[in-house]
Write a protein that binds this DNA or RNA. Structure first.
Lengths: 341, 341
DNA sequence: CGCTAGCATGTTAGCGCTAACATTGTTGTA
DNA sequence: TACAACAATGTTAGCGCTAACATGCTAGCG
């Protein structure tokens, strides 16, 4: 015979919907509806409920709501780095669109580690996120499976290719080709591609492969040089130094991004080098920074804000149940010719 | 007489702990413990449970766990803007520290609107966040109350002052004074303070008040000029133009931040002006950008990464139940004299 | 050999909310 | 007048997990 000592759990001592409902003299489901589907409750009742909420300082417990409805208004956003302005701008685009649709962003940072991505995906799925947005098409096998089977919109951004579900980005190989062609057209014959951690930042590697392809077609052996830090002015400076030491006859540097390129450009000017006469410098991204230097940086403008906004818009259409016709969107890119090449 | 048609709810069709437990031949609480307090389960049992989880592709439902335990491992982080590198760096500092302690960051962006902050605080409390970190000491009355009564660590960062609970930041008035003094020491007598949206970015306003104070002590009437965009190179360029039109005799510009200052500096160089001879330029923040120009920008270095890390560390101590002795930490600042003043 | 301490595991009862179905009253219409 | 259609509200039963208490078993001790 078990004795029935009544158990007690702590909970938060916040007011609950039931208390609000009692105060307003309605059932708790009515109080719930007053908040979540106000059109299903009469005006007078709704007002009484809202007054009671105000009075008690009620804050809805979204965890409980989420469990009951098995929907959270979370969007998981997974990026490889916060140090790079590119991802920040994509996040901004995503955030403004999702927040105005009443979704909350759950931000995860992988530090360019796909194992970490897998872990983040698990966590976010555990929070019943409504959709996932992740940078890139490369995942661990397990993560790929998880994303494929998770039965909610999955958006892969930044690059185009064979995607799991939705895909917004640009063709990085083509971008690399475009810049390499520009350099050849301008008469440079000994360009060096300088990136950092290319195994991790494989989009930079894709751009390099486009670059190398064009050079080989012109019978020029491609040269590549790899740095340690992904995108900083400081590291760009080191990049310039290393090119001067290791490839003293180089006539152009094609940097993997604008941060590196601008760092090198400003350093070159400081050393009294003439850009582009002594050495030409090109970047990738089209950050404002590079457009404020003298000479202006030659770069490739990527529509980062557009990626964020478009990705969010497509995910929202899916969440609203609309049939999505196009799963893939190429946002393109634009060669911006400055005076540094 | 009610008929008892058995009801069915959908849920997610994901495997549950109960299924894992059944497969492993244990009760669900044991399966739960195998994950959350492994030291309370024997090695063999734990292994059987973990195998079953693997086999079923189990992903823990964190929403349910959170509801049951009324703890969420979320840290709410509220910043006024993502456009500003300063907040990004603070976020990075917070993120790396919290993530390695197993907490997930919930990011909110107020766009410098304290009503929006209030709304975000409500949402995040609704998610049972373990702690809140917010930028600044100014809140709506209702938000202040909510934060005061929410019974979890609240950390206010960026500026020092009368805080709700924990506080990590620096003295912006003193920073403004320091830069103004530097300008006077260097012999400038007609400096203009240039900021943007000072009512919203009230920390810039605080710096101005320090600046103005020092000028008045030297019997110089402070001048201020207000721009529309908070921090962009482009807007800094406009700032320089406006100063030239509206205060043609100005000999120095004290910008509210380095983005504006650097934009003005690069623009001045492009126009062929001599800096600091024709006009001196100073900033605030110590972004790498300003240290790469020629001349280097005079600015005030704020330890942004430290703010993030220290804030996270203090919050974690509190979450781990340690008695916190100091609620307030002044991270200080440092005048960095470049060649632009 | 009885007793206690402690470890491994189980039973029960919620956490606070909402889906699904049920009930009541009110209106329109043939 | 009867009845369908609908609008407003209520009842019940979970969502999947873990806190709190309960139990059984082994080891250690005088």
């Amino acid at each position: 015979m078990s004795k029935h000592t009544p158990r007690h759990r702590k909970g938060t001592d916040q007011p609950t919907l039931a208390q609000v409902a009692e105060m307003a003299g309605v059932s708790s489901i009515t109080a719930s509806r007053a908040l979540n589907s106000p059109e299903r409750v009469s005006d007078t009742t709704r007002q009484r409920v809202l007054d009671a909420m105000d009075h008690l300082g009620y804050v809805p417990n979204l965890v409980a709501g989420s469990l009951a409805s098995s929907r959270s208004r979370f969007i998981a956003v997974i990026v490889p780095s916060l140090a790079n302005a590119v991802f920040i701008e994509v996040i901004k685009g995503l955030q403004s669109t999702f927040e105005s649709a009443g979704y909350q962003i759950l931000l995860g940072n992988t530090d360019y580690d796909i194992e970490r991505e897998h872990q983040l995906v698990r966590t976010f799925l555990g929070w019943s996120c409504s959709a996932l947005v992740t940078a890139g098409l490369r995942h661990t096998h397990a993560c790929h499976k998880l994303l494929k089977d998770c039965d909610r919109p999955v958006m892969e951004v930044m690059e185009l290719g064979e995607a799991l579900d939705l895909n917004v980005g640009l063709d990085h190989v083509a971008a690399g080709r475009t810049m390499a062609r520009h350099l050849l057209d301008k008469g440079y014959r000994r360009p060096v591609y300088v990136g950092a951690r290319l195994d991790d930042d494989y989009r930079a590697q894709l751009r390099y492969s486009g670059h190398a392809e064009v050079l080989r077609e012109a019978d020029i052996a491609p040269l590549v040089l790899e740095l340690d830090q992904l995108g900083s002015l400081e590291e760009g400076m080191k990049g310039l130094e290393r090119v001067r030491n290791e490839h003293p006859d180089a006539d152009a540097i094609h940097f993997a991004n604008d941060d590196l390129a601008t760092g090198a450009l400003l350093h070159a000017l400081r050393l009294g080098m003439r850009v582009p006469d002594d050495i030409a410098i090109a970047g990738f991204n089209g950050l404002p920074l590079g457009q404020f230097t003298t000479p202006r940086l030659t770069t490739i403008q990527s529509p980062r804000d557009t990626i964020g906004r478009l990705a969010a818009k497509e995910v929202l259409s899916r969440l609203e149940g609309k049939r999505v016709t196009r799963r893939q969107h190429d946002v393109g890119f634009e060669l911006v010719v400055g005076n540094s090449t």
